[in-house]
Amino acid sequence: MTIDEACRAVILSRGDAIVVATMGAMGALDRLDVGQPRLSCVPLMGGAAALALGIALAHPNEKVIVLDGDASLLMELGGLVTVAGSRPRNFYHFVIENGVQFAGMSNLPLASSAHDLCTMAAGAGYASCSMYDCVEALTADLPARLSESGPTFTSLHVIPLPPVFKHRVPQRELPDWHFKRMGDEARALTTWLRSRLPATA
């Protein structure tokens, strides 16, 4: 399964759920041209689950999907406990597990290849945890997964994109948009959430 296949499957099943994505998943959503309700956690590795938790707690009637990365989650691993301790029934945590950092750029190794995020999430107290490495099985199960009571954890094992940076293809300057988009998307999401509130007499 590729990251684009995994993210496409989630997006096709999202309904009107809010999606908070970071790093590789954010890039995949850009390629899929996914719009609001959406929030990109950038540049802030490790922040996606906590941002999404805040939204989920503020709007318990809205489903919130997190598209996290394994390297990102490992930076704030205690966030699994923070999420589970808050028991958000509307919280669906998906983690892209490609086993590398800077996937598609340089594919550097993680601190360990022996960790098991599903077991960690279960140990933290998530309501249910599962793992997929095949897009057909993921697609078949997603409607049920997104109908469960959260917080749920779903590990998506994907093949990392090949690295592109090398001697003749170095890194380029990051655009200003990379630093602005989280705020712009957050303000758009606030407007979207307000539009979902029942009109007062």
Binding site: G78, T82, A186
Partner: peptide, 16 residues
Amino acid sequence: CTENQAVCVSTGMRIG
């Protein structure tokens, strides 16, 4: 568990 998480949770709540 960490203050990084606290700031992000607070930010998500304010977005909401």
